[in-house]
């Protein structure tokens, strides 16, 4: 069966971009420059905003770890997981984006544990797979945070 790749939420990240071009997509207010992620399309949340248009904007590819943890137990629905398969813990990481002056949560790339994500270390956003429905052939895509090697290849 052919697979259909569908973002878990439409419009939150670049679809089908090459890994080096992959970005989270937020919105930026033309009135006050505030960035919103998840995207805010109806209204700017800055109470002092003079008013403006919300325009889609890619977020920084790299950030630093604000904190991280992991999920040792299967989360309840609507998280999708196969109860017939033993639970594999995954890591959650909160990432500070300097240019946007905000923190964004995400799962770490598969196999990346909390030990690989010390607070303050550099990570980058990469495309990932959240779940697949074998019956319909639908693959839900998402974003993952992945450590950037200390020797630092060009971003």
């Amino acid at each position: 069966m052919s697979r259909t790749r569908t973002p878990v939420v439409a419009g939150w990240f670049t679809d089908d971009a090459a890994e080096e071009d992959f970005r989270l997509l937020g919105t930026r207010c033309s009135g006050c420059r505030t960035v919103h992620f998840p995207r805010e399309d109806g209204h700017c949340r800055n109470p002092g905003c003079p008013g403006g248009e919300l325009e889609e904007t890619p977020l920084s590819k790299r950030g630093t770890v604000w904190s991280c943890t992991d999920g040792r137990y299967r989360p309840p629905p609507p998280y999708v997981s196969d109860p017939g398969v033993p639970w594999t813990p995954y890591t959650l990481v909160a990432v500070e984006l300097a240019a946007e002056r905000m923190v964004v949560l995400g799962q770490a790339a598969p196999g990346v544990g909390v030990a690989a994500l010390p607070v303050g270390s550099v990570v980058e956003v990469v495309p990932g797979v959240l779940d697949e429905d074998r019956e319909t052939g639908t693959v839900h895509t998402t974003w993952h945070w992945r450590p950037v090697a200390a020797d630092g290849d060009a971003s």
């Binding site: 937020g26 420059r33 960035v35 992620f37 998840p38 909160a94 949560l105």
Partner: peptide, 13 residues
């Protein structure tokens, strides 16, 4: 970061 947020407010402005 507050429950249930996925991102904080931005402090750009």
């Amino acid at each position: 970061l507050d429950l249930p947020d996925i991102g904080t407010d931005s402090a750009v402005a």
